[in-house]
Design a protein around this nucleic acid. Structure first.
Lengths: 144, 144
DNA sequence: ATGATACCCCAGTAAAATGGTAGGGATTAA
DNA sequence: TTAATCCCTACCATTTTACTGGGGTATCAT
């Protein structure tokens, strides 16, 4: 039950953009540096997020990336689905799947995976980038 | 966000054993045949479950496998943890992990994965094999 | 005894996914 | 014009997945 570094890095990068929302673009170098990961690899992840319409880019010097919408309107689930594919612990509970397994009506275990799927989606779709920013601020205050 | 066929097949196999609980051992061939998967592959999965103490084996002719405990005392989470490893969407929320990432106190995204982990565990540890058997019976009745 | 029916165990392996790297091209602010 | 950026297509090593192969061992029925 793992998500890959794609989702992991991607959410962190988006959180970074959320923290700078409204203050101009943030460069790849700045994001990657902060996370201590490969710029070039992160670039590919962000490319996906851009194609999915979650971030916009500003080319040229002083360019970078900015969130395409308000942090409150971007849920962690949106990011994870772009980078990791549909949230479905097993294939047969995937919504966009046309060929459900033939025995699904006799397949009791399917119900289990469906419950797991729903619970993951509930969590990921209930947390927005804005929520994470609020949480971060709270942590900062506790350190004072 | 996927589990592999290990967990998928394994839970199905254990459910099969639960359905026959109290009526003697069920052979590998019978389980695999029912699921339409490779006997030899399933054998390896069940070996893991046996080493973990979830199933017992009876060798020789008329042998097979039986649940090591009452179906009500085996949760889906027990099975998944044996076959898939610890339930942790990212490494840094793994309980048996000693080297938490150094920046975890600054790592807001960690909170997200922790929530995901908890919700998955809640679901998987709340469903026993006995629950699944009950569910199956209910489905049968609806078909009458 | 002996054969058929099972489980037990180690080893190999093709295909896919993961987690990158390499290197060039296009765009724009200064 | 040049340095800072994003954009894109390839390639690649390693790990994981999902098996397959083949031999060994225990037990029951006859």
């Amino acid at each position: 039950m793992r998500i890959s570094t794609k989702g992991h890095y991607g959410v962190q990068a988006m959180f970074e953009l959320a923290r700078h929302y409204g203050t101009g673009p943030v460069s790849l170098r700045a994001i990657a540096g902060r996370q201590e990961i490969s710029e070039h690899y992160l670039e590919q992840l962000i490319a996906g997020l851009r194609k999915a319409g979650l971030v916009s880019s500003v080319r040229g010097a002083q360019g970078g990336y900015i969130l395409a919408r308000d942090p409150a309107d971007i849920k962690v689930g949106d990011i994870v689905r772009v980078l990791e594919g549909p949230i479905a612990p097993v294939e047969c509970v995937n919504d966009n799947e046309t060929d459900h397994c033939l025995r699904s009506e006799f397949c009791i275990t399917r119900g289990v995976w469906e419950k797991v799927k729903d619970s993951i989606e509930d969590v990921l779709d209930s947390i927005s980038l804005a929520d994470m920013c609020k949480e971060a601020e709270k942590e900062m205050k506790e350190c004072e």
